[in-house]
Every structure is written in C-alpha cells, then in structure tokens.
Amino acid sequence: MTDTMHPGGQGKGTADCVEVCAVEVGGARFGIPIAHIVEILGLMSPQPVPRSPDFVGGLVHYRGDVLTAVSARQLLGMPPLRVPHAVLVLEGPAGCFGVQVDVVKEVLMIPGSAFEPNPCTLEDRHKSLFAGAYKLGDGLLVMLDPARLDPILLAGHATAA
C-alpha cells in the first residue's frame, strides 16, 4: 500500500489542515490537492486529437504552450461530455498537463487526520488513480492522485497493457 501514500494525499502532514480542490466528475465528488494545481482554467473545449489514446481529452492552449488535457471522465470509465469543461493545469515531472473535469466546486480545508488510504477491496483501475479519501461530514472525498494523471505515465500504462 505504500504506493498510494503519495505526499499529495497527505498534504502538509497529518497534524495540519490540507487544502483540497473539490471537483465534480459525472455527478461524483473528487479532490485534488491544491499544492499540485498551477491554475484553474475556465470552461473550454479542448481541441480533439484524432487517433489519440482514450484518456486524452484534447489539447488546450495555456500561456503559449500546448498542453495535453487528460479527461477525468474517460479515466473513470464515463462517457465524454459534449459541452465545454473546466480544465485544471497540473505540474508533472515532465512539464504541465491539463485535467478535464465537469465542474470545479470549492476549496476545502480538511484536517489531515481525516485521511484514510484506499480500501483493499477497490478495483485495480481505481486503485491506480486514487490516492485515498478524506472522511468528511457529508460523505467521503476521494482524492485523485496528481502523479497518476500525467499523460506520459498513462501512455506508458496503455502501451504496457
């Protein structure tokens, strides 16, 4: 289980509070640690890339660079939306990339002690995307692991599989 203990999931340590950006994908709520988010872009329609792997939502223009946007819906096995999406810009080891979500909700301050790692009963596909969950008053906030969303890593998985 050590691979799910990503620093992003733990935030600034168990004693402190963690800032998490809550997003909605296909009606469900997910969290992404704010420390990994470079910028939140408004609604936009990424340029589709014909013949690209399924997880690629398209290309977005960000400050003079062309970023590959990963579709969170596709990753979670949901049908794509035909309307403009919100795009988060995350920073990975090989540069920035985008993550397409349906809606960006709010930024939450969550005590680190509310964190729980992934349950062992979770499907493998989800295990590789989720970093764990925070127990909140109104339900669980499942954390997306920013490092696992990097298109380069996803492409590597796709070719390996």
Binding site: S52, H61, T68, A94, P151, I152, L154
Partner: peptide
C-alpha cells in the same frame, strides 16, 4: 507535443493558428 501524443505517429507538434484555434 506530449510524448503520449507523439507516439501516435501522425503528428510532429501542435500550433496556435491566427484565429486562436489549436
């Protein structure tokens, strides 16, 4: 382009056109 897209073997890069489209 991200290596993930270069792998497709059709594109050598991307650009922003005069009308702002990618």
């Amino acid at each position: 382009l991200s290596p993930a897209l270069k792998e497709i073997g059709l594109y050598s890069g991307a650009t922003v056109l005069g009308n702002g489209d990618l």
